[in-house]
Design a binder for these strands. Sequence first.
DNA 1: TTGTAAGCGTTATCAC
DNA 2: GTGATAACGCTTACAA
Lengths: 333, 333
Amino acid sequence: MRKPTIQDVARRAGVGVGTVSRVLNNHVAVKGATRESVLKAIADLEYTPNPHARRIAGGRSYTISVLLPVLTTEFYVRLLDGLETAFQEARYDVAIFPLLDRSRLERYLGSHTLAYQADGLVMATYNLTQMFHERRLRTQQPTVLVDAFADNVDSSFMDNVAGGRMAGEYAAQFSGDLYAVWVETELDQLFTTRVFEDRRSGFMSALDTAGRTMKAEYTSSFDSLAARNTAATVLDQAQASGLPCTVFASADMLAGALLDEVRLRGLKIGQDVRVIGFDDQPWAAERGLTTLHQPVESMGYEAAQLLLSRLNGYKGPARARRFEPRLIIRGSA
Amino acid sequence: MRKPTIQDVARRAGVGVGTVSRVLNNHVAVKGATRESVLKAIADLEYTPNPHARRIAGGRSYTISVLLPVLTTEFYVRLLDGLETAFQEARYDVAIFPLLDRSRLERYLGSHTLAYQADGLVMATYNLTQMFHERRLRTQQPTVLVDAFADNVDSSFMDNVAGGRMAGEYAAQFSGDLYAVWVETELDQLFTTRVFEDRRSGFMSALDTAGRTMKAEYTSSFDSLAARNTAATVLDQAQASGLPCTVFASADMLAGALLDEVRLRGLKIGQDVRVIGFDDQPWAAERGLTTLHQPVESMGYEAAQLLLSRLNGYKGPARARRFEPRLIIRGSA
DNA sequence: TTGTAAGCGTTATCAC
DNA sequence: GTGATAACGCTTACAA
């Protein structure tokens, strides 16, 4: 039992293949009645278009490559949700390339996968555009950055400066010493992000405005062991200098380690030690963490729209879609 | 500047397109000299075949869908490496579907992506075949399980029973109490794995053979907070019952939490508390963790071969490729 | 508004 | 061994 083709549909609906194609692609110029009968034939036959034929005829791949870091926080799953929703609506497929390091990127550049399969590129968190230019990948696919910003490319991201500022303004209200823990972003120089720098500069400027100063700052790499050690160090210092204190952790993972450590020492969260996180991970509500929520799905959805508009011929200058975080106040501060 | 096509290559090499195609697909029947000239033309023109045209002409997608859990341990990156290597060699593309839960699976089943794009399916860790049968997805694509086993499907996996047994035999040599921490695999009933059950049964049978018994067992879910709590519980009990003791953690993540906790309590790893992990994560060497190493890339590579043989017409019964783990002895036990 | 027909770049099937 | 040429299933002019 062969899969039905556009020919079968056309025959059954008593129309030409061109008309069926138009219906499929939502071309305006199809009369209501004809459209109906085509739709009915499609349903009757359980026809689904063959994407490969479409690609070869259309001269494009109708596929978008999404390059994302292999950091499996909830963040990227939500991001993917937003992206996939938008691209599916536009009948584009999404090809996912989980990037860990340079060697994985090389693998994708080496295979012809990326070059041929993608009409456009989405890069999450890391701005890899330079790498692509060097390799002269195709004649430069339209690209959009998500969770990152660069002034020469379309981008959709959250305003981390604003997020840091909100955290800073909130923290500044509390009496007692102020501490902060930042995330160290080492890795390859190709894989860099300004996210944490931005959170920091927002936070600092808010303290500045409020006339407050920080007692001390710490940096931790993004893994649970380091987070734990850092939490211990922070609390050692805080206990020595006197409580209560307020700690801004620039990522929930770091904040989680702090909550653990506070409890371990028999201190009271929200009283002896106030903790403000960033990200609003799924567990944050349950643990009563005050944190900043990011509209991640929307960022993804909007990134997709930016890219789609380029694919549809938009030629203007790079656009930036900036999203605002939201401070979620819970028990921890 | 249009991309060169097979026509261009044929013209330049002074042969027919058929011959070029044969060279591309490694058909035997091409004379050495002709092959050379075609290869040269390909190189000169920097020709790369258009996969879409190939798909439509060949009547298949030359694409394999890989469904994998979004647990970003190194494990899946290595697995992907093995899979991609094998599939690239065979000129197949790999489409990755990161699965978190049922809703993401539904999304993929709903879109026609999977149905059309894949000549075959690789399922990592979770055996989702039943789900696919229910949905009558296409006429049943050939499927291979990796890091999982079922007797009606090709599979490539590590012998976790053997791994558990090796850990058990090694642990049984030590004097003092024996403990173990297992991983709880809840989630949806669709997303289940026997990996940890197997490790447990191997471990238990080894103790049995050695005439040893376990002082106590614990279960933890697979996240760092739970791991930490469990580690504390285990050590509370162990300290109360008397040291030294030996703890088998059925996943390195759990073992890592134990190492932390041991140090926190000022105890000596490898003396007061011996820890055996499972997985050999990248950090295991650095932290001196005795653990079981899995040949993950090979598992992936072999899984791909099984699938490819099906695609090339193999019709025999389901095959199982079983890999052996290797005990890596380091300082922790 | 709709039908017809010419591609799109391969693979597969023939002859030679 | 190799070269024509007919598919493959769609999109997109161009006509009607």
